[in-house]
């Protein structure tokens, strides 16, 4: 039960029930669709990059609490960040939910990472790691200007 409570913390439930930055973005500079064919979760990420900074980021889609909360939290954390920071954050987040370790040291405020640490609980649920990473992979594709759908498989 402790693992479950860690997975379904209040903050995750809150984000999944009331996702932040939900909806489409007018005139995005990058957008991508992600899909997990195993569970049917879909997410679309819309980005507007200006002068190397994420000016705005929104998402829509449907999926489980983990995937929706992860997408919601990601948009909150990435807004206003430099593209270089976003790429590094991707690596750190990926490390966090797969190995429990941040993949590299970066120049973030500890508070930023703390917000994402709540998702580290998925480590104990191998079948659910992709739920947490779907939005991030899709964001990375949107950043790279890849229009093709991102698949977890």
């Amino acid at each position: 039960m402790s693992g479950l409570r860690e997975l379904y913390q209040e903050v995750i439930l809150d984000h999944s029930k009331a996702p932040r930055n939900y909806g489409k973005l007018e005139a995005p500079t990058g957008a991508s669709h992600g899909h997990n064919p195993l569970c049917g979760d879909t997410v679309a990420i819309y980005l507007r990059i200006k002068d190397g900074v994420v000016e705005d980021i929104r998402f829509d889609g449907r999926g489980c609490a983990i995937s929706m909360a992860s997408a919601s939290m990601m948009t909150e954390i990435l807004k206003g960040r430099s593209v270089a920071d976003v790429k590094e954050m991707f690596e750190r987040f990926h490390g966090l939910v797969t190995t429990g370790h941040e993949a590299c040291e970066g120049g973030f405020e500890t508070a930023d990472l703390d917000k994402l640490v709540v998702l580290a609980g998925v480590r104990e649920f191998p079948m659910r790691v992709k739920c947490a990473t779907l939005a991030w992979h899709t964001m990375k594709a949107a950043l790279a200007g890849e229009a093709d759908e991102v698949s977890t498989e």
Binding site: M1, Y8, K17, L38, G40, C64, A65, I66, F125, C131
Partner: peptide, 22 residues
């Protein structure tokens, strides 16, 4: 209000194996 995959994960922790998805 609860996605089938979240239900599946919670039931699994109760020892209950169900199929979730399509």
């Amino acid at each position: 209000g609860v996605h089938p995959h979240d239900i599946g994960t919670i039931l699994d922790h109760e020892g209950i194996a169900v199929r979730v998805g399509h």
